[in-house]
Design a binder for these strands. Structure first.
Lengths: 111, 111
DNA sequence: AAATCATTTGGTTGTTTTACCAAATAGCCC
DNA sequence: GGGCTATTTGGTAAAACAACCAAATGATTT
């Protein structure tokens, strides 16, 4: 256990990590990332299942891109997005465990 | 690859997961979670290293709690917080990989 | 029961995020 | 080139967030 203030470098790293998590911390963006798990998709393919303006979708993708979660590549008329670091999604089962634990706890409080 | 709209249930799950990630998506909160990796701490122990009002710290903890990331328990005058699902932190190296990849890409663009 | 300590709650303000619309860009097809 | 398609950019309004201060709560000590 380290009893000291974080250094500037540590602070910067924490901030960078938080930024990646924040980018994934929106339902639409998380869904997008999950969709990319099995290969790249163009914006239009993603948009097909999202009930939102194209511009909104585009902006969400740009958030993911700025965070380093996805990379994009234009081919012809379309822009294809892919996960840059696929291990990110391996994280999700554990995130689900949090939810399951919460649900259980809730359930236990019931009469 | 499934070509269909997500069901209401799937949507709710995604939302819950995004919520957990969002909770971790703030430097102070992520730092707190990391500190709890090696055992519970009371608010005052955490506060010692955070340059912010006590009320701010308390509110961050309550965000983590509402998301199911931490649990709290009052003992005497103090309130102790602990990680509820420790695996959450196991995947941070992958989050770091995203950052490293971004950094490398940036570096490659330099002259 | 008053004083004190640890923490939370309520209220306020400034900042960020999100979503929509309209307009701009870029690549293809005629 | 003009028209289409796919996507991004800019602007704006509404909602959510983050930080602070002041006040409230709950437990303990005196």
């Amino acid at each position: 256990m380290d009893r000291r203030q974080p250094t500037a470098k540590e602070r910067a790293l924490i901030e960078a990590k938080a930024n990646v998590l924040k980018a994934l911390g929106h339902p639409t963006r998380l869904w997008m990332a999950e969709q990319l798990a099995d290969g790249e998709k163009c914006v239009c393919e993603l948009a097909e299942f999202i009930d939102a303006d194209f511009s909104t979708i585009s902006k969400h993708l740009s958030v993911l891109k700025r965070a380093g979660v996805v990379a994009d590549e234009k081919r012809g008329k379309q822009v294809y997005y892919r996960l840059r670091v696929p291990c990110l999604l391996k994280y999700l089962p554990c995130v689900e465990a949090v939810i399951k634990a919460s649900a259980l706890e809730q359930a236990e409080l019931l009469p």
